[in-house]
């Protein structure tokens, strides 16, 4: 497919939406305005933007505990997201899911997930529904390198392959399973080797470059939609902040030099440079995009702040469909 100016700008906007929202969420968490755990997606934006940019709007995705980026890149609403992070009734999950369970079924986003690897079998189910109903959609599961050490991943990979399902496995390989480096937790370094073990193709792409991800994802998606069965795209990427929270440096599990080196490959900067050098945008128009999106983020904070908390009687609502819990 032709990668037009519009696509290049669209990819940029998707990344900026994630970055500015996440940085804001980080600031709010630092000032103790967000309850619970916060797993920031900063640094990995090119993956969500590149993959979601290549999807049809109703292609399903499942996500991870680091899931804000996936929903935002798929078009998620700032207000409902920020409200959810604050535990407000107006949030995506009425304040009952929080950061780790952000979802938007209208956008075919079948949920972030607090259990590592657990979204992958669910994507298999969505892919099966696509196959059975012949709706032409594909299902995508985002997961980290660490998730591929969990049984659920292996069961899902094998089943997707055995049933030849329309599913794209997207591994966000950020080199760390929480705080443990990849080389301590697995004897291979490229997760696509696991795809090969289950009998489907995989390829590695630079996960710090949204265009590389978009192009690679598009190539795979076209084949998957055409009925070639599952494929795996492994994006080599990096988490600028720690597994949880807003600290990214002075840590006991990775060096500041490493973080600094990877920050030089910041996916936003990589793409901004490209947009400017190719004359598609200039510094002013880039700043204008950031300003507009920051305004939306600011509005979402205000919206969330002013939204009510759920009522106590909401506690038992939605445990079951069409029924009450006691």
């Amino acid at each position: 497919m032709e990668i037009t100016d519009e696509i290049l700008i669209d990819l940029y906007k998707r990344m900026v939406r994630v970055r500015l929202f996440e940085e804001e969420a980080g600031r709010l968490a630092e000032s103790a305005r967000l309850p619970g755990f916060l797993h920031l997606y900063v640094g990995e934006e090119a993956v969500a933007a590149g993959v979601c940019g290549a999807l049809e709007s109703q292609d399903q995705i499942t996500s991870t505990h680091r899931g804000h980026g996936h929903l935002l890149a798929k078009g998620g609403d700032f207000n409902r997201m920020m409200a959810e992070l604050m535990g407000k009734a107006t949030g995506y999950c009425n304040g009952k899911g929080g950061s780790m369970h952000i979802c938007d079924l209208d956008l075919a986003m079948l949920g972030a997930n607090g259990i590592v690897g657990a979204g992958v079998p669910i994507s298999v189910g969505a892919a099966y529904a696509n196959k059975l109903t012949g709706n032409g959609l594909i299902s995508v599961s985002f997961f980290g390198d660490g998730a591929t050490n969990i049984g659920a991943f292996h069961e899902a990979a094998n089943m997707a392959a055995a049933l030849s399902l329309p599913m794209l496995f997207v591994c966000e390989n950020n080199e760390y399973a929480e705080y443990s480096p990849r080389h301590k937790t697995m004897a291979i370094t490229d997760v696509i080797e696991r795809a090969a073990a289950y009998g489907f193709p995989g390829a590695i792409v630079d996960g710090m470059d949204c265009v590389a991800v978009f192009e690679a994802a598009s190539l795979a998606i076209e084949k998957i939609r055409g009925g070639e069965g599952p494929m795996m795209l492994e994006c080599k990427t990096y988490r600028f902040y720690d597994h949880v929270g807003v600290k990214g440096t002075a840590s006991d599990y990775r060096t500041d030099e490493e973080v600094e080196e990877m920050r030089k490959r910041d996916p936003l900067v990589v793409h901004e440079t490209r947009l400017i050098e190719s004359g598609i945008m200039d510094a002013d128009s880039i700043q204008a995009i950031k300003d507009d999106i920051q305004k939306e983020v600011d509005i979402s904070v205000e919206f969330a702040d002013q939204s009510p908390f759920p009522e106590l009687e909401d506690m038992l609502v939605d445990v079951y469909t069409n029924g009450e819990s006691s």
Partner: peptide, 22 residues
């Protein structure tokens, strides 16, 4: 559907398909 011996994936198969309306 005859599935692999994969209990987690069997339930996941059901969940994902159920969310899709099956």
């Amino acid at each position: 559907v005859d599935t692999p011996i994969a209990e987690q994936a069997i339930i996941g198969l059901g969940i994902g398909a159920a969310v899709q309306g099956l």
